[in-house]
Design a protein around this nucleic acid. Sequence first.
RNA 1: CGGGACGUGGCGCAGCUCGGUAGCGCACCUGCUUUGGGAGCAGGGGGUCGGGAGUUCAAAUCUCCCCGUCCCGACCA
Length: 566
Amino acid sequence: MRWSNLHTPTLRDAPADAEAASHKLLVRGGFIRQLHAGHYSLLPLGWRVFTKVEAIVREEMDAAGGQEFRLPAMHPASIWKKSGRWDVMGDEKFVVIDRKGAENVLGMTHEEIFATLAQEITSYKSLPQIWYQIQTKFRDEPRPKSGLLRVREFTMKDAYSFDLDEAGLDKNFDLLRDAYVRIFDRLDLPAMPVEASSGAMGGSGSTEFMVPSPAGEDDVVRCNSCDYAANVERSSSALPAVTDRDLPDLIKFPTPGVRTIAALEAVEGGAPSHQQIKTMVMVLDGTTTLALVRGDHQLNMQKLQDGTGATDVRPATPEEAEAALGAMPGSLGAVGVKGLRIVADPVLQGRAGLTTGANEDDWHYRGVNIERDVAVDEWMDLRDVSAGEACISCGAPLEIVRCIESGHIFKLGTMYAEAFGAHVMDPDGNQRPLVMGSYGIGIERNVAAIAETHYDDNGLIWPAAVAPFEAVITVVSLKDEASVAAADALYSELKAKRIDVLLDDRDARAGVKFADAELIGIPYRITIGPKALADGEVEFTVRADGETTRVGLDAIADQLVAALTG
RNA sequence: CGGGACGUGGCGCAGCUCGGUAGCGCACCUGCUUUGGGAGCAGGGGGUCGGGAGUUCAAAUCUCCCCGUCCCGACCA
């Protein structure tokens, strides 16, 4: 490609509304342009990176035994109602009404369609199967953000495995997990596999691949001493033992104006936060529920959702809380409460001498024995892990790292197979539902994740495997005929060697060309100018470290090939 | 959906408080000079000031409604 013909509108200034590094640089470098919130056009450079990322994903999926499909992006509403996800997905699905008035869904993932196709797998002898596609997904995200990191229309490689039993699923899960490790390795992304929540996908277990980055949206709890790592939504930690206070009797005492845990610590007759019960009034699918955690802990909403199986979880409004318990938030508690579902964090199990709200403004209880005084329906992990708490497997302090979710793989089980009647005959002649797994990677998000982790003050620094061009030949002066001739010859030579090379033949000042080449992040630059050329040499610059060496014109092609293959 | 900010040539911004000429930098076009790290001078083109309604002799500026975008929280590849 000759730069004089390339549409790469580079900008000196980043758009004012861009915050994330990848967003700024991809816009500045002329890789992407926004159409509207959550929808981006990929310009030629952006598309080149995209296709290289896509090719790596495809190669590794094929190597793992995957078979590529291409499914419709638009589905009849009926299939989504059949799986139950019409309701689960709620406002996040794009619904399109056709001329007949029928509802259609723009696909968010394709479990339903693949499960339908899997009806034609009829014997265990055909198993296992790994099916995948690379296709556009639509999700009406409540808040698209950060350029390509979170959008409403994007391309996903979604794969699905089909097995006779859980053991088969486990095997495929591990196989594809390994494929993912190889993919992220080739993309030069430091993605760590972590335990995760399955969320709306359902299923028994899942692993996320997390790339540490301040532009991410997830927090990962990680141990530096062992290999424990989990999304905060699934994480746990070891806590030091606490001793109950010796308060055998339940006593109601006045707490005028006390509305917070901190205030209750300070008031006459109060208690340290870890001797308190925090009572959160939550609404789960329309049903008011009390969620109890220790006073110094935070409720994790995802854990509450996962633990209860609810699809919609939100805090109650102060008015709803008052209607349910008779007091405003700040004086709420679960002592003696009947008729409401009560779930509690296991850290509270067996504890006594606690302090909590009395469901009467300005009054609290002390001496609460949770087993005696609170009708807990279910104990479930509900609390956030905090940095510095001890690792459950080795005891070392945990850290919390902000991450981009680059990939997510799920053990789905049989739910979709049962919904769509995807059964096979087993060796004993019994019909059994297929056991499924699902495996997703967002292509654009990974392009952004690479950008987010590969840049400096001068611009992007693409890994050669995904760079829009592997090398750029910069002609310092178009007026110097010898330079032009040498550049043209080298350009032809590199193309013949199947190197992705860009020839900067623009009639611009050298400084502009250097700055642009660095901004768009081409990993290797060959500068051809009169100075070195007089000695039969060119300059070879590595984008990552800026190191420049003089190389003979006759040796540069081999040196570049060595750099690219090394 | 809750909270905050913003919307003025392709990009970044000023002008709005106090209504009256739409301006600056970058980019773009022409010419001359320049030419190894985002050149200089001269000339030039381009803007329904997000949209609608209202107030007014007069609205980018004041009022109301709507739309859009970004950021922070609840969701996900």
